[in-house]
Nucleic acid binder design. Structure first.
Lengths: 291, 291
DNA sequence: ATTTAATGTTCCATTGATGGAGCAATGTTA
DNA sequence: TAACATTGCTCCATCAATGGAACATTAAAT
């Protein structure tokens, strides 16, 4: 079962009606070609080509073998071409794991646009806040916020987005409006998980403040909701609080400061991606940055 | 175009649903198998198998690719099986070069029998006395009398046949009957081509005599005819002169002596023979010796 | 007839593939 | 829960496949 490549070589030799010619076409030294064809003849126990120094012609067995080989090799080439088309005309199910709130606010319109662009793709999104295991679960890609953990996964940066501080007017009335970052130490700062410090920048300075809160949770949406309900200050991506901002439920705090911009990554288990995934990631890279 | 073998490996892996299992089936270390599949995935730029340490399953691309690969690999196997059948059920045209007189007397009945045995074979015999060039002319096999010349051809011995001395009664009346080998020096000894000596044996002794004749020719039939026409003594295979012997046109000379037995060879250009040729040679080996 | 250019094969140093052992990861069993 | 067995992958010494050059041979060109 190690003769299939040699079959392809044989087909080339017959087509070129010459070892040297075929070798040039394939891009292989004729010595190798000669040896490989000889090996093929030996494994099947029949002479396929009748060689003189100047000409080669098919034997009877070679004639029959060639007809079959040509079909087989052509079919193999076709199979690869069609895989190539799969790469350029993506289709199939795209399974992605998305951070729920980021997906809802930032990605929804992009996904709608992408779906319009590639009607062949069907989507299967898993919106969670947990970091799914790409190795054991059959996700094509996971979108992740923040630095990629140290693993063998491939992380492609999609965008770097600014974050700002927000709170509800009533909270600020009650607890006072912080004038500088250090003031945050005396506020209820709602962070994701158990993040214990916020890093803030203005044009010139960078400062780190320890934060504390009575809440530990893993839902961005819930944090925003809590903030809108006057429970504290949040550091958040712009778009996520856009509605609350517009309706006046939240308003910017320390407006000349911003948090450390968060990076968004597309994470995959491998570099060998089907077209659908490649296009999805490329699309996000091109459109997420400009938001 | 160097991925066809890997396609076959991929098919085996999918069938076995395991790298190790497939490796055992193929008889190949799993390390190689793993590397080859990875290489295949890299060349087509798509992941074909979703691997966990415990299980493997096809990706979408792998699914499609597998369907096609299976067909292709099966077809390739079939092509080889059919070539194998060509080997076991010979058919086609058997082109052979035969020494004309030897063929007529010794081989004709064998050929008739062989033709009955293998109805699929069609025959194309070239009966000449010249030694055809097997390399440039499309003969499957040549039957040759006497030692094979030093060349790259493959010679398989078919039989070793005794030769005796014959002359016409009238020639012997006229020129005297030789009583011992040395007497031949004074006789007209008709040899093929320009053979200048005859080697004779009786049970115990071997002797070499120089021979001479006015005729140089390359036809055994013509020599026999000349001998029957009282032109000299010939050293000949038994069967060739059987008719002349029976009709009394020739009779044995020096009956206790015989010539150096001649070997008959089947000569081919290569060892990789189609079934028809293999069977033909085997048949001749089995039947020529017993004549 | 003689030269020329081109063919398929062979030789041999080099390189790339190979495969056994070990590894981390994971499903299974006690 | 812990020990075990099995999986696919990786490392590296070894070996076989490779490809450039030379060769013998031959058809075409002069």
């Amino acid at each position: 079962m190690e003769f299939l490549n040699d079959m392809a070589l044989f087909v080339e030799v017959v087509k070129a009606r010459s070892f040297r010619g075929a070798a040039d076409i394939i891009g292989m030294p004729n010595s190798t070609l000669s040896r490989r064809i000889s090996a093929l003849e030996k494994t099947i126990g029949l002479r396929l080509l009748h060689r003189t120094t100047r000409k080669i012609e098919l034997t009877e067995a070679g004639q029959i073998y060639y007809e079959r080989c040509k079909r087989i090799v052509d079919e193999a080439k076709l199979a690869h071409e069609q895989l190539g088309e799969m790469l350029s005309q993506p289709s199939g199910v795209l399974r992605a794991s998305l951070p729920v709130d980021f997906a809802v606010t930032y990605m929804a319109p992009l996904i709608a646009e992408f779906a319009r662009l590639y009607p062949g793709i069907v989507f299967d999104f898993d919106l969670t806040s947990r970091r799914v295991d790409l190795v054991s679960e059959p996700f094509d890609v996971a979108i992740r916020i923040g630095e990629p953990e140290n693993s063998q996964l491939i992380a492609r940066p999609l965008a770097v987005l600014p974050v700002y501080l927000y709170a509800s007017p009533r909270y600020l009335d009650r607890s006072g409006e912080p004038a500088e970052p250090a003031d945050l130490a005396h506020h209820e700062c709602l962070g994701i998980m158990k993040a214990s410090t916020w890093t803030l920048h203005d044009g010139a300075h960078t400062t780190k403040v320890s934060i504390g809160s009575r809440f530990t949770l893993n839902s961005v949406g819930m944090i925003c909701r809590l903030a809108a309900l006057d429970m504290g200050i949040i550091m958040m991506l712009e778009k996520i609080v856009a509605d609350d901002l517009a309706s006046g439920r939240l308003r910017r705090v320390l407006p000349q400061w911003h948090g450390a911009p968060v990076s968004v990554y597309a994470v995959t288990e491998t570099r060998l991606l089907p077209a659908k995934t490649q296009h999805f990631i490329k699309f996000l890279q091109e459109h997420l940055g400009r938001v």
